[in-house]
Design a protein around this nucleic acid. Structure first.
Length: 802
RNA sequence: GCCCAUGUGGCGGAACAGGUAGACGCACAGGACUUAAAAUCCUGCGGGCUUUAAAUCCCGUGCCGGUUCAAGUCCGGCCGUGGGCACCA
């Protein structure tokens, strides 16, 4: 029995298109369910088998939910601003829009060939002016709220891409776009005040069902740290040198202060600093270093003592020397620290190198000797009013002291910085701001949005650190919205993350012309119920998107504070050699070839069967062949069909159990065991001489979310019932799941010694009798004292003898 | 260094809530059908008991201990692998 899977797949895809089977309606009586998978970047290399995995997984869930009577929103679109299209434009000297269009075309036909049940009526690309109009509009909302500001700041700079980068894009000191080591650069940038939402972003996680590892990654990234600020007087000035510390209880152990090389006091007090030349030289060296070099922990600590400046310790009024060193970061805390070498490893390393005194203020519990650095807890010594206290008590008492004497205060610090939002690149949303020499920065009026991205003579980044847009004079020169005088447009563009920071909202009402989406639509769909994406986005896209949404919520633009209820991540699909798929490794599998050779259904089934959805899995073409074989066997079952419209007696309980298991497994994303349960059911069908029409239809129905084409086809050929897209999900009956008899194990002293057949209606005594009369069991219990007999029906009989 | 995962046959992986470890699939081996091959179907497949074979006989879920009638699963301590953060004061 042969069949042409390509024809069948095309046929059903056309039917679904024509019937608009997957179109979601805004409103109605049904319960809503919003399933979202991260929209792809339509790159030239086409769809990856990894896309197939996550798209199929959520497709199966969407199909199940529809059959269960939900109104399901399962949309798809394109994240099309950003570097691949831009690099293509630079290379081929063409405006990227056409190339993006082509890539979207390829991606879309690939996705369609998989039979995924996306609602295409809501499709859009982030590069559509109708879309980025609203991205720009939202930027202006941030601006109105005081959450978007332009500031001169030390930012991450990629010398290769010639653009500024956010901290998230420069994680680990490496450029996210090109992998080049980043440096710091002082630049005027648009920033979004994400730091103001640090606590809110941590708090909000409590209302989500994200995977623990995703929550932890976000919490680590935000890096909340509770401590205190302490004001040291700067001797012979009116200034204070403020530091942040989590260990204010060690203030009596301070023997020096360390400033970051960028600290403002160095410039301010250069006249007082007798070795200023040396300081400048050190600052220069620090600036030249890449982030990786600067934060390399294995390297020797370096620094310069500031001659001519001293600080005064507020707890004992002692004079403390001041140093600069690049192990102190300007971007964290106050850019200055108090040095307690006895109880901090970094300070200890620095102090021993430069012979800075070491004062122990916490007694080492394990040693009487006061040598080296001790970071453990213990009782305070040499600490005046803190002597004899432990860490917790000492911190509380010190904060009390600092606040009472107005020389410090409790303080919470975050690692999370404001979001650097400007890019000096071409292919992004123009930032809708205008600079007027009289009025300063002015937002573009709403009725002039979108600010269309113009074509430029050259797409390459410029050497002077300006966006290529700065060369388009008739675009740059405009009039001030406020005074009407001559003004210039902002030429920086938004980062790639802007468009993806609200796209799930647009899907709710993608054609809306008077807002990001209609409020009723947003209220109807509410949160995304399930959002799937890669782990690499845990501290980038997912954090940006939550921040963005929280700001919109606070301004009353969206009705929910947390946009995503549940976030899951899929594992990667590795090459057959267990390595990450890449062209250079030559282990890339093209999904098109697999669809052509084995069919979309086989590819889908295999990718669901390949292993735990959340874990990485290695590709195996033999595994795919095995799944094709499974589908062939399902197809051939037609020849065993009889006329009955009831379940076969012999299969009934297995069928009910399988309905329960498959339903559960798809809902909990345990796709591999769902497929395996269907294989087991097929094996039991295969052992029968004939099967009923109902037996067959239920198997096909359960398989339908995973292999939608072939199941619809067989259902139609055999006239088993209405198409599955229009049929309610099969139901199971717990009572029908009970089997007449089953086997259970019998253990003696914890070791399995026999297996006995038990019927469902037998009581414990009868089971016990059967166990004791078993020949093998007799061997082990004869002549021994029975201490205890444990009988757990359905599970085990356990006999303890002495 | 801190945090989060994770460790089961030749391989991918099952095992609900502590209750017969290895489901299901792949690979491999043997057989049936066939002139032959492919396809299909059937059987076997953790290790050992050392040159016949076998068993509900023994050992086995990274290692060492513990709790329990019973541990892949729970507890304590190690080791390995993967990932996140990291000179963050």
């Amino acid at each position: 029995m042969n069949y042409n899977f390509s024809e069948i797949e095309k046929k059903w895809q056309d039917i679904w298109d024509k019937k608009e089977s997957f179109k979601a309606i805004n409103g109605g009586d049904k319960k809503k369910y919003y399933v979202l998978v991260e929209f792809p970047y339509p790159s030239g290399s086409g769809l990856h088998v990894g896309h197939v995995r996550s798209y199929t997984a959520l497709d199966s869930l969407a199909r199940l939910k529809r059959a269960q009577g939900y109104n399901v929103l399962f949309p798809m679109g394109w994240d099309a601003f950003g570097s691949p299209a831009e690099l293509y434009a630079i290379k081929n000297k063409v405006y990227p829009a056409n190339m993006v269009k082509d890539c979207i075309g390829t991606f879309k036909s690939q996705i369609k060939s998989l039979g995924l049940s996306f609602d295409w009526s809501r499709e859009f690309a982030t590069t559509d002016p109708e879309y980025y109009k609203w991205t720009q509009w939202q930027f202006l909302e941030f601006y109105k709220e005081g959450l978007a500001y332009k500031a001169e700041k030390e930012i991450n700079w990629c010398p290769n891409c010639k653009t500024g980068l956010s901290n998230e894009d420069a994680a680990g000191g490496v450029c996210e776009r090109c992998g080049h080591a980043t440096t710091k650069k002082l630049k005027n940038q648009w920033m979004l005040k994400m730091s103001a939402y640090a606590d809110s972003l941590i708090e909000g996680l409590k209302d989500t069902e994200f995977l623990d590892k995703i929550k932890t990654a976000q919490i680590n990234w935000i890096g909340k740290s509770i401590g205190a600020e302490v004001d040291f007087k700067l001797k012979d000035t009116d200034d204070l040198l403020t530091v942040f510390t989590t260990r204010c209880d060690t203030l009596f152990g301070v023997t020096a202060m360390v400033l970051s090389p960028e600290h403002e006091y160095l410039e301010k007090y250069k006249d007082k600093i007798s070795n200023y030349d040396e300081v400048v030289k050190y600052q220069e060296e620090a600036r030249q270093k890449s982030e990786i070099e600067r934060t390399d922990m294995t390297k020797d600590k370096t620094g310069v003592k500031i001659e001519g400046l001293l600080a005064i310790n507020p707890v004992n009024n002692e004079e403390v020397e001041i140093w600069i060193s690049d192990y102190v970061l300007s971007s964290y805390g106050t850019g200055a620290i108090m040095m307690v070498p006895a109880h901090d490893e970094r300070d200890y390393a620095f102090a021993t190198k430069y012979n800075i005194p070491i004062i122990h203020v916490i007694a080492n519990k394990d040693s009487k000797e006061e040598t080296g650095v001790y970071i453990g807890d213990g009782l305070h010594i040499n600490s005046g009013f803190l002597d004899g206290l432990n860490k917790e008590e000492a911190i509380d008492k010190m904060i009390e002291f600092l606040e009472k004497n107005k020389v410090g205060r409790k303080k919470i610090n975050y690692r999370l910085q404001d979001w650097i939002f400007s890019r000096q690149r071409f292919w992004g949303e123009p930032i809708p701001m205008v600079y007027c020499s009289k009025c300063g920065w002015e937002p573009v009026p709403e009725n002039e949005l979108p600010v269309i991205l113009p074509d430029v003579p050259s797409y390459e980044p410029t050497d002077n650190g300006e966006s290529p847009l700065s060369t388009v004079e008739d675009w740059v020169n405009t009039t001030c919205p406020k005074c009407g005088g001559p003004a210039k447009r902002e030429t920086d563009t938004m980062p790639n993350w802007a468009g993806s920071s609200w796209y799930w909202i647009r899907y709710m009402d993608s054609k809306c012309e008077n807002g990001i989406a209609d409020m009723d639509a947003m209220k109807y769909w509410g949160q995304v119920d399930l959002y799937n994406g890669g782990m690499e986005h845990a501290t980038r896209h997912l954090l940006y998107a939550r921040f963005w949404n929280q700001v919109l919520f606070d301004r009353g633009i969206v009705p929910v504070r947390e946009p995503f209820k549940k976030r899951v991540a899929h594992g990667m699909i590795l090459g057959e050699n267990n390595e990450k798929m890449s062209k250079s490794r030559g282990n890339v599998v093209n999904p098109d070839d697999m669809v052509k050779n084995y069919g979309a259904d086989a590819l889908r089934t295999y990718e669901m069967f390949i292993g735990d959805y959340s874990k990485d899995a290695s590709w195996s073409e033999n595994g795919l062949k095995g799944c094709k074989k499974f589908l062939d066997r399902v197809y051939r079952l037609q020849s065993k069909l009889n006329d009955s419209e009831e379940y076969s007696k012999e299969l009934e309980s297995d069928i009910h159990k399988t309905i329960k298991k498959v339903t559960n497994d798809i809902e909990t994303m345990n796709y591999n065991t769902a497929v395996s349960a269907l294989m087991i059911l097929l094996n039991s069908y295969d052992k029968m001489d004939c099967i009923t029409r109902k037996d067959y239809r239920t198997l096909l129905h359960l398989l339908n979310p995973i292999a939608p084409h072939i199941t619809e086809e067989v259902n139609e050929i055999c006239k088993l019932g209405t198409p599955f897209t229009e049929s309610p999900w099969p139901e199971y009956d717990e009572n029908k799941m009970i089997t007449d008899s089953y086997e259970i194990g019998v253990q003696v002293n914890g070791k399995l010694r026999a297996s006995i057949e038990v019927t469902a209606d037998e009581d414990k005594e009868t089971i016990k009798g059967k166990a004791f009369s078993n020949e093998n069991i007799k061997k082990y219990i004869e002549g021994k004292e029975i201490v205890k007999t444990i009988i757990i029906p359905n599970k085990i009989v356990s006999i303890v003898v002495k």
